[in-house]
């Protein structure tokens, strides 16, 4: 395990993000651990509200107020480029390091390309802004580079589009422009938060192709946040499955899809409609619904919805997130705990 952590571009460990509200503390992330390897695509899947988007924002330290990182570390490995290892979790969100990182080493593509551009500034204005912030270029050079990037991502008529506004572009073109802006400073990590959710299916495929092509050319890592398992299957090298602010299972994409270990991952995969399905069978779904944020079940949070729920174990303590022997999969479930640990005394959690 230590070897992956050393070679990881970003290694997140026990990350907790809390939102203190008047009604109580919302634990958006409750101890997430994951590694992103250089040049690889990590897919992050989970239902709405499981905290998958929060990870992306935590990495950039742009959490919505009043959210903040309360515990854990996010080790950014800058050794390859001659820098030091930096713990993002303890950086000042308004500090110089974080600002240099945002849009520089780590860039983000958002779900809504329409609203993610300011409606009263041109596309070119916003692209140049990112370039001028992170690179030593004159405005004229930034403009040239923007147009080149727009050509690169397949936006026709780039010099003209440069002066247009987001509402003058189609959804697909807007997302292309968003991607062009994100890669403008050659990031090492691209966080794509539901990049294709707001697009129609044909455009989705084009955008995914584009991301793959750019990844090859730029050798960047991609963290692909989505609820769409099809997108994950097509794009990801490794997968993290999240449930209620925790990673419940992770591993290489083939292992997760063919040999899922956690009952939640198994349930997710069963609920994908199959092309081979005959007749009008009802699609299996995961029983129950996501618990209220202020009323979390004790022990394993998936317990109440789990088909393999074991009274006395699952509701008593939290299963450890650990690597399964002989595999590259990590899972957090008592079904896969060594037998002696099941009877463990309940922890304070």
């Amino acid at each position: 395990m230590t070897d992956t952590r050393d070679s990881a571009l970003l290694s997140i460990n026990g990350l907790k993000v809390h939102y203190p509200t008047d009604e109580g503390v919302v634990k958006a992330l409750d101890g997430v651990s994951l590694d992103i390897l250089p040049g690889q695509t990590l897919g992050v899947v989970g239902e709405s509200g499981c905290g998958k988007s929060t990870i992306g924002r935590a990495i950039l330290q742009i959490l919505d107020k009043p959210g903040r990182v309360v515990d854990g570390e996010m080790m950014w490995n800058a050794r390859e480029s001659g820098g030091q290892t930096l713990d993002i979790a303890i950086q000042n969100p308004d500090g110089h390091e974080m600002r240099a990182m945002r849009g520089g080493d780590v860039a983000m593509v958002f779900q809504e390309p329409m609203t993610s551009f300011s409606p009263i500034h041109t596309i070119g204005n916003q692209m140049s802004e990112a370039i001028l912030l992170h690179q030593d270029k004159t405005p004229a050079e930034a403009r040239e580079w923007s147009i080149e990037l727009m050509n690169m991502v397949g936006i026709p008529n780039a010099p003209q589009r440069f002066h247009e506004y987001s509402y003058q572009l189609s959804g697909g073109l807007r997302q292309r422009a968003m991607i062009a802006m994100a890669i403008s400073c050659s990031p090492k990590l691209l966080i794509a938060d539901e990049p294709t959710t707001a697009l129609d299916v044909t455009t989705q495929a084009q955008i995914l192709d584009l991301l793959r092509k750019l990844q090859e050319e730029q050798k960047m890592a991609i963290m692909l946040i989505t609820h769409n398992l099809g997108v994950i299957a097509e794009m990801a090298d490794a997968v993290v499955v999240m449930y209620l602010g925790k990673a419940v299972e992770s591993g290489p994409v083939d292992d997760i899809f063919h040999r899922p270990k956690h009952p939640y991952s198994q349930g997710l995969l069963r609920s994908i409609p199959s092309v081979q399905a005959v007749g009008h069978e009802k699609l299996p779904s995961i029983a129950g619904s996501i618990p209220h944020p202020f009323n979390r079940p004790s022990g394993c949070t998936f317990g109440p919805r789990c088909p393999s729920f074991m009274p006395g174990a699952c509701d008593a303590s939290v299963p450890r997130y650990m690597t399964l022997d002989g595999t590259r999969q990590k899972v957090s479930c008592f079904l896969h705990h060594p037998p002696e640990e099941v009877e463990e005394v309940p922890s304070d959690d």
Binding site: L60, I62, G104, P119
Partner: peptide, 21 residues
């Protein structure tokens, strides 16, 4: 609004971001 978050994500300094967008 998302465009504010997006601008923040590309590293625009906070005060400049608020005035500009």
């Amino acid at each position: 609004k998302p465009y504010v978050v997006a601008a923040r994500a590309r590293g625009v300094p906070e005060w400049k971001l608020i005035l500009k967008y």
